[in-house]
Simulated scan of single mutants.
Amino acid sequence: MTRGLRGATSVLSNEEGQIIANTKALFEEMVNANDIEANDVSHVFISVTKDLNAAFPAKALRELPGYTFVPVMCMTEIDVPGSLPNCIRIMMVINTEKDQQNIKHIFHNEAVKLRPDLVKNKR
């Protein structure tokens, strides 16, 4: 069965190093917290707010062993007035036997504000 796994983080500024590092840290925690292997991942969507254009966050996944052939697509998030700036969101579609309520969604930095109901360990 496939399940969606959510994650989000934020960066302090529109710099390639921050975008890649924060995306990588978020993705690695999503994978580790849910016992995911690269072959379990169907595809990954990554959205960024309009203020982030210094790098494709998908580059962070390409640096991880086993993720060369996982389809990843980057896009711009809807620009809703008052929404969290400098935000990177990940939607990973995985093959798993876990029930929906047992999926551990991960939020880092200012992005913990997006879904406080899903955040157990605020960073």
Rank of each mutant, 00 (worst) to 15 (best):
S10K: 06
S10Y: 10
S10D: 09
L12K: 10
S13H: 03
N14T: 07
I20P: 03
N22D: 00
T23Q: 00
F27R: 05
F27G: 03
E29Y: 08
M30D: 09
M30E: 07
V31S: 02
A33Y: 10
E37R: 11
A38M: 09
V41R: 05
H43S: 10
V44W: 13
V44T: 10
F45E: 11
S47R: 04
V48L: 05
V48H: 09
K50D: 15
K50N: 14
N53D: 15
N53E: 13
A54V: 11
A55T: 15
P57L: 02
A58F: 09
K59N: 14
A60F: 01
L61M: 08
R62S: 07
E63V: 12
Y67P: 09
T68C: 01
F69C: 02
F69W: 12
V70P: 02
P71F: 08
C74D: 12
C74M: 11
I78C: 05
P81Q: 14
G82E: 10
C87G: 03
I88P: 01
R89L: 07
R89D: 08
R89E: 14
R89M: 11
R89W: 01
I90R: 05
I94R: 02
I94H: 01
T96L: 13
K104W: 06
H105K: 00
I106R: 07
I106M: 10
H108Y: 13
H108P: 01
N109H: 14
N109A: 13
E110L: 05
V112Q: 03
K113L: 11
L114A: 12
L114E: 15
R115S: 08
P116M: 05
V119D: 01
V119W: 02
K120C: 08
N121D: 12
N121T: 11
